[in-house]
Design a protein around this nucleic acid. Structure first.
Length: 512
RNA sequence: GGUCCGUUCGUCUAGGGGUUAGGACGCAUCCCUUUCACGGAUGAAACACGGGUUCGAUUCCCGUACGGACUACCA
């Protein structure tokens, strides 16, 4: 069997894409590219009640931002469309009817109240698992218990109905999961799931089988939450007679809360202060914005690298992979079985690494843009200088500007702790001398000469330079810590440095 | 409750019948240094438990415990 590899990512447009979904998309993408296959996006919008406007566009933008754009999608269809399930609505009924004809499915007319009553009755009778199955269906209102005439009459009268799958009473269902190996389930534990809802839409179970078949999907890579219903899906392939082309399954381990137990949720992000969505999402009904990795300052490649390693590893000790390298190294065999806790500290580490490897000019643009928001026009050179000074010290690109404002704004206040410890007569002597030197210096003022001059000042007043460096820093930047001071001087220029020193000498009191 | 899935440092994980159980993040210490950070070095830190198989089990098998997913006319 040498079919072209075709995988799909099939989210429902019910809100922002969860980061776990993003990882599923990533694994699908990586698998497709590794095998020269196609990565397909299918929108599963069969639940009309839960449809959220804007969710589709959100999915599209998120995948584009991450650089895992689908080869086929509603916006870039291939020739196996439609790529939105709602648009295939008329087809599903035909397939469901085909199953009814073959005796693998049946009409059911039970109302919600009748269903509830059945469950209550079963619970009261201490039946361990109240469900619509091979036993209980004999007591319900469906085309298995009703006469053909009555079924016909009900259908013709327009009475609402669903179509349920008829699960065989005794059958061992086996499926070979690419990650977990053979999984065996007895059909007696399965229930007669609804295939067609009374609104004429299919349920996920029917739609995903029909679509995967029509779209020639070869591998279904999805979250572990689907594992329990996978046996039903296998049965459906069999009922349709599509066993030959049934895709292979790979059920991914879940993304877990960083602390405690359970699946990672939006709440965890809010509670612990990190994003769980790829990009910002504005909830139109509540007016709240859910923060995204993009807006938080994460680089797409860093996020991808981080996500790839949550549940997968290449088998050697490398951890830093570009998207292309991930594609090259990726195999389903190396996906782990156990759920992975979401550790934002590692994500930050990845981001720091990628930030450091981003070209200066690129980051300079961020700085220019951020500065502009604060009302400062920065030249390219100045922005680049800021980046050079700061990029090894920050986690996100937004901090580049935030951490460097002292280069544009002279300090009005000075760190009191540092002042009380380091501001002394020695420091004032050196600084006074230095300011005078700066006034008359006519050469090229760069980091090196700035330092030489400072050294000369220290020598002139007989003070060890090392003892007053922090005071010098305090005078010029207002803080006790920061990037290389002499580089800062070079950027500021001798005039500004002298001015700041004098301001500090006037405003700081010598306490020791 | 039932079905299914899982369990190696705090976290992500490698490994696999005999290993000093390896790496990364985080943490600590030291070095570098005008500070902070970067970088470098070092360190603390793990095979859930009980049986069995075996000369030997963290590794294989069976239980137990714990955790998770699912159990809708939602996906």
């Amino acid at each position: 069997m040498s079919r072209e590899v075709r995988v799909r990512f099939a989210p429902s447009p019910t809100g922002p894409l969860h980061i776990g979904g993003v990882r599923t998309a990533l694994y699908n993408y990586l698998f497709a590219k590794k095998n020269q296959g196609r990565f397909i996006l299918r929108i599963e919008d069969t639940d009309q009640a839960r449809y959220v406007a804007g969710a589709e566009e959100y999915i599209r933008e998120s995948l584009d931002w991450l650089g895992i754009t689908p080869d086929e999608s509603p916006w870039n269809p291939g020739d196996v469309g439609p790529y939105r399930q709602s648009e295939r609505k008329p087809d599903y009924m035909q397939y469901a009817l085909d199953l009814v004809k073959k005796g693998h499915a049946y009409y059911a007319f039970d109302t919600a109240e009748e269903l509830d009553a059945m469950r209550e009755r079963l619970t009261a009778a201490r039946v361990v698992q109240p469900q619509y199955n091979s036993i209980t269906r004999t007591q319900m209102k469906n085309s298995l218990t009703l006469s053909a005439e009555e079924v016909k009459a009900r259908l013709e009268s327009g009475e609402p109905y669903v179509i349920r799958v008829k699960i065989p009473r005794k059958e061992e269902v086996r499926l070979n999961d690419l990650i977990r190996g053979w999984v065996m389930v007895h059909s007696s534990t399965l229930d007669d799931k609804v295939l067609m809802k009374s609104d004429g839409m299919p349920t996920y179970h029917l739609a995903n089988i029909v679509d995967d078949h029509l779209m020639a999907i070869t591998h279904v890579i999805r979250g572990e939450e689907w594992l329990p219903s996978a046996p039903l899906h296998v049965l459906l392939y069999k009922f349709f007679g599509w066993e030959e082309t049934m895709p292979e399954f790979a059920h991914l381990p879940l993304l877990l809360k960083p602390d405690g137990n359970g699946k990672l949720s939006k709440r965890d992000g809010d509670r612990l202060g990190f994003p769980v969505f790829p990009i910002d999402w504005n909830n139109q009904s509540t007016g709240e914005t859910a923060i995204g990795f993009r807006e938080q300052g994460y680089l797409p490649d860093a996020l991808l690298n981080f996500l790839a390693f949550l549940g997968w590893n290449p088998g050697d000790e490398r951890e830093l992979f570009t998207k292309e390298e991930l594609v090259e190294a990726f195999t389903i065999e190396r996906i782990g079985k156990a759920g992975a806790k979401f550790d934002i500290a590692k994500a930050k580490w990845y981001n720091e690494h990628y930030l450091r490897n981003t070209p200066i000019e690129e980051l300079a643009k961020f700085v220019q843009a951020d500065a502009k928001l604060d009302g400062f026009e920065l030249s390219e050179e100045k922005a680049a200088a800021i980046v050079r000074l700061t990029k090894d010290r920050v986690t996100f690109s937004a901090e580049l500007w935030k951490e460097s404002q002292f280069l544009v704004l002279a300090p009005q206040k000075f760190d009191e702790q540092v002042a009380s410890k380091k501001w002394n007569t020695d420091a004032v002597k050196v600084l006074g001398n230095y300011a005078e030197r700066l006034d008359v210096f006519t050469g090229q003022f760069d980091a090196e000469t700035a330092k030489t001059l400072l050294g000369e000042s220290a020598e002139a007043v007989e003070v060890k330079l090392g003892k007053v460096m922090q005071a010098v820093r305090l005078a010029v930047t207002g803080a006790g810590a920061g990037p290389d001071l002499m580089e800062i001087f070079a950027i500021l220029g001798q005039e500004e440095v002298a001015k700041r020193i004098r301001f500090a000498m006037e405003n700081l009191e010598v306490t020791s």
